[in-house]
Amino acid sequence: MRRLLWPLVILAALLAVNVLFTPGFFSIQVREGHLYGSLIDILRFGAPLILVALGMTLVIATGGIDLSVGSVVAISGALACLQISQDAGVFTAVVLALGLSVALGVWNGFLVANAGIQPIIATLILMVAGRGLAQLITDGQIITVNDPAFKLIGGGYLLTVPFGILLVLAVLAVTAFLTRRLALGMLIEAVGGNAEASRLAGIRARGIIVMVYAFAALCAGVAGLMISSNVSSADGNNAGLWIELDAILAVVIGGTSLAGGRFSLAGTVLGALIIQTLTTTIYSIGVPPETTLLFKALVVTVVCLLQSAAFREKVFKRRARTAGAQEVAA
């Protein structure tokens, strides 16, 4: 639990800042049978990021990284919208989009686990080509769709709650079930923590690695549906742009080490919420929204410095030295 302390403190601080500037920040109302409020908005707009970050968490826990999720977001949204615009039916569209996403994830996993290519390089391929693929699907256009069933995924409400939030909760529950109730989490952590020891303990690392990349792509696919559904259109060029970087950031803020091993789903959710709240906060306190990136840069730097053993050692040593000097002086 101690690992979640700092993210919690940061999130609380951000929320506190909001209350200062927007007194009614915490109020949640029901209007026309829908939940309304700033907190609900943070959850609703943060939903795609949380999804992508959940998938990224498992990938990073195996010691990998997936740069291609942003492209998968675009591809999934593009394919779904294309199908719907061709009257294929929402169900078919969703199944096709998610199926393609998983296939792309398996491709990444295959390159990493079987071909032995460094994850950052292997997923770079799809990161570059995927954008083109998404535009190929939409034929370079922004496909606009108008389908109430599809609208539900990212913009609709179910039982007064935004559907996106429910979806995130469902994926979170499934992920938590797979990793913590079933043994997937432990095996992932073992592979990421010590690959050779895992092999000697009889763990089939390849299958697990392919699976986490497929899962990350599936999460990205769902996020892609959500984003395109929310704006009722697919933009192959800009949908999910840089979401992979935000997702990696969320994972790192949540206390999962980029070196692999121990991961924390709760931490990742917190990390994603921090990023989303940061964006909201910047809007609400009247700082130009363009500066969000500056704050992100600051957060990444601080978090990484705190996680760096070399940094801690340097700071710690200096402290120890000054303490020692004081003792001598005394």
Partner: peptide, 15 residues
């Protein structure tokens, strides 16, 4: 090539 240092005693035993 034996233990996973970041896992607990229980997890390492059960691995």
């Amino acid at each position: 090539d034996g233990l996973v240092p970041d896992l607990t005693v229980r997890e390492n035993i059960i691995l």
